[in-house]
Design a protein around this nucleic acid. Structure first.
Lengths: 159, 159
DNA sequence: AGCCAACGTTAGTCCAACTAACAATTCGAG
DNA sequence: CTCGAATTGTTAGTTGGACTAACGTTGGCT
């Protein structure tokens, strides 16, 4: 048996039934692979997962304080600091103090930032296409819908 | 705005469109929550994710060497060591040297191990029920099927 | 005999998710 | 108007899962 093969690969017949029934395990496996795929793709253009979400939030909702941004992009404010530093280094955002509230910074996406977002968007579109390759359009939408429902259900009532 | 609320909570309207379209992000979010749910539940009975998969693999395929077990349970052999130590401490498995190959250990599930597995199975069934609460039976099956297809697609051809 | 592969084990890396604390500033209640 | 509480950005650190490297021991092969 040349069993020394990679882990994480599917070995259908040899997977215990009880494990197959565990949604958390299945979601976890899939998440690990999609995270790797998108992570690798973004890394290859010198980006990071959070770069995309932050730029997207800025492009869609306009300038914002860091804490508002953290909320929208679902990035912890503690992690956001480094992300914004990197984005500022690339010239993709500007971080200016808010004159009306000296605690705040106002984060603004730049023109090159908009272009950067488009670039990352395209990279991720490719990844998404690859990930969802075996699914039809309808199935893809179904998957999104189902995950969204599970997700917001888990997010909502902690009970 | 009492926005200081927890992160990871759903804020539908304030989520940028582009982010909603990212499957990897959605799967990742869901995975984080399901992992937390099942992790917490297992921890509350003094168990660990890998305890379950290892016991399940033993129950379903019988005694095995650690490396065979690592393959079936999809646990890295390096991590398996600690798991087996814990399982042995609980009296749920036995680790005996294989007389026919002194490199190997033969891992056998004990009677109490079988009962432990049943216990964990029940705990996880509860978690699964909670996770999939908003879905009908058909939807739940659909979700499984879709994730399985995506998953094995990603696992298979690295191309 | 000698060499390479497999086994169990130890140790450690990498990354995402998450928490705690803190100085500066602003707000709000008395 | 003042003083305590809350918010903002920031630094630091923790936890946990996924994964890799290397090593001594043993086995199979020729």
């Amino acid at each position: 048996m040349e069993d020394g093969e990679e882990l994480r690969f599917d070995r259908g017949a040899e997977t215990p039934e009880r494990i197959k029934a565990q949604l958390s395990r299945l979601v976890g496996l899939t998440a690990a692979q999609t995270a790797r795929a998108s992570g690798d793709a973004l890394r290859s253009v010198g980006a990071h997962k959070d770069h995309f979400v932050v730029l997207a939030a800025l492009a869609e909702f306009g300038p914002a304080s860091q804490s508002a941004l953290a909320g929208r992009a679902r990035v912890y404010k503690s992690d956001l600091v480094a992300v914004l530093n990197e984005l500022a280094d690339g010239g993709w955002i500007r971080r200016t103090p808010d004159p009306s509230d000296k605690r705040r910074n106002v984060i603004t996406i730049t023109d090159t930032g908009v272009r950067r977002l488009a670039e990352l968007d395209q990279v991720l579109a490719g990844v998404n296409a690859h990930i969802t390759a075996p699914l039809t359009r309808e199935e893809r939408d179904q998957l999104f819908a189902l995950l969204n429902r599970v997700n917001s259900h888990l997010a909502g009532p902690p009970s």
